[in-house]
């Protein structure tokens, strides 16, 4: 008897191999970048702000792997050391945004009523401005420096998390297991902490890595405009900013390496986020 086959019409993505590949590649890039940042002193001969008296704007090769910039500082060393600042601020800022946003979202979503109204109107105000403009304004207000930059970037990102978690909580709070928790005598805090929080974090887990890449770009953008980290501290954005005039003169090495580093790291975060998204979708099916 002849057999009839129904061939799958959907792509191979369904089994999650694609998602896994994305997660591994993205994660791999980030691990390498993080290691390079941590081990920067071991991988470089020169300090990031150390000036080589023997020459400024030296071409790559020889004493300086990627040459020197206009101040005579080693570009390779600066690119690696800058990773500490860029990755560090981005990750910390997003972590802070997730924590603050999630707490606000939980409160607004579960308590509802005036708490919801007040919190969400504040969120509305934050979200009414284009995010980068808002970042510019906040950082102009707070000034530069590591802590202030973390706060600035967290502040512009937290509202999105508040909204995301609130939406999630509003559907979850109608679930039977929340009723079950209430009838089991659980307190409001207990319900939020033990039942709503763990169940509402799935979308946050997907968005956060993508958001880290975006946070790095914001930081670099601020520094590029002179609002973030200032010279001589090593930071990719400010390095690119300093090096723009050199490119015209044909000295590409002062701005291209930090630009590439930025690109690769943002790509790493994007791939990781995509992969997580893909995996979450595959599970939902």
């Amino acid at each position: 008897m002849a057999a009839i086959e129904m061939t799958p019409v959907v792509s191979v993505n369904r089994d999650g191999r694609f998602a896994k590949a994305l997660i591994y590649i993205g994660g791999g890039i980030l691990v390498v970048a993080a290691l390079a940042a941590l081990l920067a002193p071991l991988l470089t001969k020169w300090g990031p702000t150390e000036i080589d008296p023997s020459g400024t704007l030296a071409a790559p090769g020889g004493e300086h792997l990627l040459g020197t910039d206009g101040n005579g500082m080693d570009v390779w060393s600066r690119v690696l050391h800058a990773a500490r600042l860029d990755l560090g601020i981005a990750v910390l800022a997003v972590a802070l945004a997730v924590v603050v946003g999630t707490i606000l979202g939980l409160l607004a979503g579960y308590l509802g009523g005036w708490v919801d109204d007040v919190l969400m109107r504040i969120v509305d105000i934050f979200q009414a401005f284009p995010t980068f403009i808002l970042a510019l304004a906040v950082s102009a207000l707070l000034g530069g420096g590591f802590v202030n930059l973390v706060i600035t970037i967290a502040a512009v990102n937290a509202p999105a998390y508040a909204r995301l978690v609130r939406a999630e909580v509003r559907t979850l709070r109608e679930m039977q297991y929340i009723d079950a928790a209430k009838t089991s005598g659980a307190s409001t805090i207990g319900i939020m902490w033990r039942h709503l929080l763990p169940n509402s974090l799935t979308p946050v887990r997907v968005i956060a890595p993508l958001n880290c890449g975006w946070a790095m770009l914001t930081l670099a953008g601020l520094s590029f405009l002179g609002l973030g980290v200032t010279v001589p501290t090593a930071e990719w954005g400010s390095m690119i900013s300093l090096g723009t005039s050199d490119v015209v003169a044909g000295r590409w090495w002062t701005s291209v390496p930090p630009g590439l580093a930025l690109l690769v790291c943002v790509l790493g975060f994007s791939l990781l986020g995509e992969g997580l998204q893909e995996r979450a979708d595959a599970r939902r099916r």
Partner: peptide
């Protein structure tokens, strides 16, 4: 409040997923 307990209609949905 725990003196009264309830058994729900949706057996899996009434247990916290995580």
């Amino acid at each position: 409040r725990t003196r009264a307990q309830m058994v729900f209609q949706d057996p899996i949905g009434s247990l916290s997923p995580r």
